[in-house]
Amino acid sequence: MPQFFTNKRLIILLGSIIILVALIGFSLRDRANITWPEKFVKDVTGFGQNIVSKPAGAVEEFFDDVRRLRNTYEENEKLRVHLAELAQLESDVARLEKDNAELRKVLEKEESLSDYEPVQATVIARNPDRWYELITIDQGESNGIEPDMAVMTADGLVGKVKSTSKFTSTVQLLSAHDAQNRVSALIQADTAVYGLIEGYDEEKKMLKMTKIPSDSKVKKGQSVITSGLGGVFPKGLVIGKVTDLVPDEFGLTQTALVQPAASFYDLEHVMVSKRAMTKVLPEEEDRQQVVIEEEGP
């Protein structure tokens, strides 16, 4: 049997294992965004990815369209019914929006947690080894995207921006297994019930909403939306519906299983929400007042 490793090769192997461990340690660090060499590589690779996946996406969409063509008649019937309702709804929304703006003016509260500016993006790649539930979109820092922004589809929230480069961003889906993947949410019961979306039940395909007070009355089928309290996500993005409620191991809080409104599979077009109101601290003058009060007796 020939010798598998000569001395030189053994040294190379050990050296590369050390480099491997160092690099993994580096990339697992809790960091706000990736370093500039990584950004550069991402932009170059993303450029190529754009060239390859845009035509591929177009071809796929064409076949989807052909498939949809078969149910056109039924869909048309359904849509006609909806359209009749829509006119009424539209006028209602316009009236309410106007009311809201006026009332806000009265309160001198121009910005709210729910204001956001959506940025449209196309999914150009999904991590082929599918371990970390990451997707790459074709919008980056040049379009004002920053880490931790909310990402959603027309149906609801799907994830948050993990890292950005100049022209691409990586999005971590809510279904990812990551302890840092938390979203502050609320259940729309008679009084709002707050909790945290953390974790994903792989088998049931449900999100887990934890830290719900044990005395809160939550019913099945109630909607779960983002609360806007996390600091970056706007308020009011749809997450899903409560399907089950279980007490946690100590019985102090409850955990709700939430059926996600948006599908985490086969994403093509997503929206990144730039929240309008990012200030957490009160206005300059108010802040001073607070400080003086604290320094009092």
Binding site: L20, S27, L28, D129, T170
Partner: peptide, 17 residues
């Protein structure tokens, strides 16, 4: 492998090694 790590997984070094 290096490109794969950076672009897709974000866990540097794995595929590269």
């Amino acid at each position: 492998g290096f490109l794969f790590d950076m672009f897709y997984t974000g866990l540097l070094g794995a595929y590269m090694f």
